[in-house]
């Protein structure tokens, strides 16, 4: 499918916004749910975009930037895989499979960009010495612009060559045993994301709640909203009953005076 000029411009803008979202991690425009949907809309098949987004989102659930550790890049993976599926006429399973190496490549690219932007940090130092507020704004936003181009340039290249048939024949050359296998793997690849979330919590003593969720899911038909409510109730009850948090009240009660604040401070 050949893309027209307006579509190419729109892809450039959306992929730039996704690239910025990836470093900012604020508006979540880099998340598959958002980026794939927007690309799908541009390519005239939003429903497919939404489904790819939902599938990729589950895989990417645990991809997060913690401290100085960079996550696999959801932005590049979402944008390009959606283009390949819709404009390159691939199956969603194949799209997901291609998204993974793209996420790894995006991770390398963002580390590269975050090293390049050290230059902007130093430029900002010299603007600070001049007392130039505008200079600092330009440095900050310039660095953000590099992150936007990081995703926008590869995406627009893919979008431009998708109609030429070269990309198409390359994708069609993938044997069915690979695409089938990748589709099978798609069923359980999501556990990596779940494992990342569990690892990040670093709360081994709370794992009984994990097993409870697992068993309830195994034998009921509850949906996610129900699980959310049950989980919230469990959390509140746990906090209310936990002796760790009730100590101060018990200790302060016999004194009966207004020293609670002081006691709190001492106990902390």
């Amino acid at each position: 499918m050949e893309l027209n000029g307006a579509q190419l411009i729109a892809i450039f803008i959306v992929s730039a916004i996704a690239g910025m979202g990836s470093v900012l991690d604020e508006f979540q425009t880099h998340r598959p749910l958002i980026a794939c949907t927007l690309i799908g809309f541009i390519l005239g098949d939003m429903t497919t975009g939404i489904i790819i987004g939902g599938t990729l989102e589950m895989i990417a659930l645990g991809w997060m930037n913690i401290g100085a550790a960079m996550a696999p890049d959801a932005a590049l993976a979402s944008v390009i895989s959606t283009i390949l599926v819709i404009a390159g006429h691939q199956s969603i399973g194949a799209g997901i499979a291609i998204a993974m190496p793209l996420a790894a490549a995006g991770q390398v690219l963002t580390i590269l960009c975050r090293t390049l932007t050290v230059f902007f940090q130093h430029k900002a130092d010299s603007f600070a010495r001049e007392g130039s507020l505008r200079g600092i704004d330009i440095c900050h936003l310039g660095a953000l612009g590099i992150q936007a181009l990081r995703v926008a340039i590869p995406s627009i290249l893919v979008a431009m060559y998708i109609g030429t048939g070269a990309v198409q024949s390359m994708l069609d050359a993938i044997p069915p045993v690979i695409t089938g296998g990748l589709q099978v793997a798609g069923g359980f690849i999501v556990v990596v994301g779940y494992a990342m979330v569990i690892n990040m919590m670093q709360a081994g003593y709370l794992m009984p709640f994990f097993f409870l969720g697992f068993v309830i899911a195994a034998f009921t038909q509850f949906n996610l909203v129900a699980f959310g409510v049950i989980g919230l109730v469990l959390a509140i009850v746990y906090i209310q009953l936990n002796p760790k948090y009730n100590k101060t009240v018990a200790a302060a009660a016999p004194s009966g005076s207004g020293n609670n604040d002081l006691d709190d401070d001492l106990d902390d």
Binding site: Y194, L206, F210, F211, L212, F227, Y238, N242
Partner: peptide, 27 residues
Amino acid sequence: GNTLQKITEGASILGLFVMGALVNKWT
């Protein structure tokens, strides 16, 4: 103080509980 610790612990319980459900249902 205690408040932030309570919120963190509560959020972790909710998060782990839902993760347990997801491992079962969404794979």
